[in-house]
């Protein structure tokens, strides 16, 4: 714990620091790309075990999108599914000892800004620019600046809630590990006996429960905000 809880800088490319966040994101990208490649080879009419599982996942994502955005906006399913899969894997990365990329505000805020761009881009596209701009003057024109600030708050609250949840879990887990290390050293067996079982329930809560829940919430809110802007 020499440099706080920020992501470590692994190496630099031309003066640009490459942190753990970036390398772990690359790891997830490689894993997802390789998995997708091998999962979609040899697709058959009568699905095997793997294909069945993948089809169930894709169906679930399409069902979720249909339910919360409506039948006409089911085209958003690929993006929302990608977001859900990426965020779930990213949040669960803490379980295998990597630092979750979502414990960096750059990751979460950039995802939130993508949602923000979608909200306003698709809002303009489906309503027309005039109607879209007129929406800011509701309920009356004097409230326009307040509406604009309120819209700007959306990506910030989206990004920071995910970041806060994950980084909070990360900090608590690393504090717990260092406390347990001290305790084990006090006993003096030479084996890190406390670090073996004690953190498990905390991992289940902070990594598994909070991680999956927060990624679901992020995707759900993105879907609802985009569909709200379009209707």
């Amino acid at each position: 714990m020499d440099a706080g809880f920020g992501p470590r800088i692994i190496f630099e490319i031309g003066g640009i620091p490459i942190t753990e966040t970036v390398t772990n994101t690359w790891l997830i990208m490689i894993a997802v790309i390789v998995f997708s490649y091998f999962a979609t080879r040899n697709l058959e009419k009568i699905p095997g075990k793997l294909q069945n599982a993948i089809e169930a996942l894709v169906d679930a994502i399409y069902g979720l999108t249909k339910q919360s955005m409506g039948d006409d906006k089911v085209g958003f399913a690929p993006y929302m599914g990608t977001l859900l899969i990426y965020l779930t894997i990213a949040n669960l990365l803490g379980l295998v000892g990597f630092r979750p990329p979502t414990a960096d505000v750059n990751t979460t805020l950039s995802l939130a800004i993508m949602t923000f761009a979608m909200i306003h881009g698709f809002g303009m596209k489906s309503k027309g620019v005039g109607t879209y701009l007129k929406g800011f003057t509701e309920p009356f024109a004097a409230l326009t600046p307040l509406n604009v600030i309120g819209e700007l708050a959306t990506p910030i609250s989206l990004g920071f809630r995910l970041f806060g949840n994950i980084v909070g879990g990360l900090i608590i887990m690393s504090l717990l590990y260092s406390a347990l290390a001290v305790l084990s050293a006090k006993i003096g067996l030479g084996i890190p006996i406390f670090q073996t079982a004690v953190p498990a329930p905390f991992h289940i809560y902070f990594d598994l429960f909070a991680g999956v829940l927060q990624s679901f919430i992020f995707v759900m809110l993105s879907m609802v905000f985009v569909s709200m802007a379009m209707d």
């Binding site: 169906d59 339910q67 609250s157 920071f160």
Partner: peptide, 29 residues
């Protein structure tokens, strides 16, 4: 649809719960 992930009112409940968690932070930000 053939994809019965979550149906009807149960799904609505999840959606509202998600919004409930968002209310706090959208007040603070």
């Amino acid at each position: 649809c053939e994809c019965d992930f979550m149906a009807g009112s149960k799904f609505k409940m999840y959606e509202n719960l998600v919004f409930l968690t968002q209310i706090g932070i959208s007040m603070v930000v």
